[in-house]
Amino acid sequence: MRIRWIEAPAALIGGVLLMVSAIAEVAALDGKALIEERCAACHDLTGPAPATFEGLLKRKAPDLFYAGSKFKRSWLVGWLRNPTPIRPSGVMFLNHIVVEGGKDRIAADTLKTCQANLDREEAEAAADHLMTLVDASMKTGVIDPAKKFSTPKGRRLFTKQLPCIACHTAKFGKRTMGGISGPDLTKAGKRLNPDWVYARIADPQYWDPMTWMPKIEMSHRKRELLTLLIGSME
């Protein structure tokens, strides 16, 4: 009889735990379904990237089919909950230009901010799925983010020896400077996987055949320095 008295509560607790576990499983959000439902209308989740000028003009939002290679999960979760603009000229600058007196400018009222605004649980599930969308051929572990580097040398490379500053906004100390046709890099260190930054600089057209970022040959050391500098922009 004693054994039965002990067994009964144990069985009851076990049963409750099983039920809780089953309910949790049912309630767990399906990040893949969420992304497909909320994001696929604007973002390409499967690739390939546009290979024609016409296709480039039609792109509504950045490609996400290699999001897991490109982004840091922690940034994704935060951004999906509160999206903020990253590209000051939109996903394709030509779609937002007005010309006045021969001068081009971006018509700010034509820029659209992502309306995801997911709650915490949704953002976690969506980020989990996005992190599975990787480019299998990208080398990982190439960049050691903790590696020490010379900020002045990196800055000189970014602003003088290479034309990065012409298209990207960057922040050096308290000074924000640079062009706007490329993504804003002022907080790129929080957003981007350093290995992807390195790979993107090496061959921009591999990721986006029609990108207006030039492919520029440079040594591993210079590319690594640029990557570390961009990674330090937080």
Partner: peptide, 10 residues
């Protein structure tokens, strides 16, 4: 007078 110029980036 492209956008990078008119935005003061160059």
């Amino acid at each position: 007078q492209g956008i990078n110029e008119t935005a003061g980036g160059l």
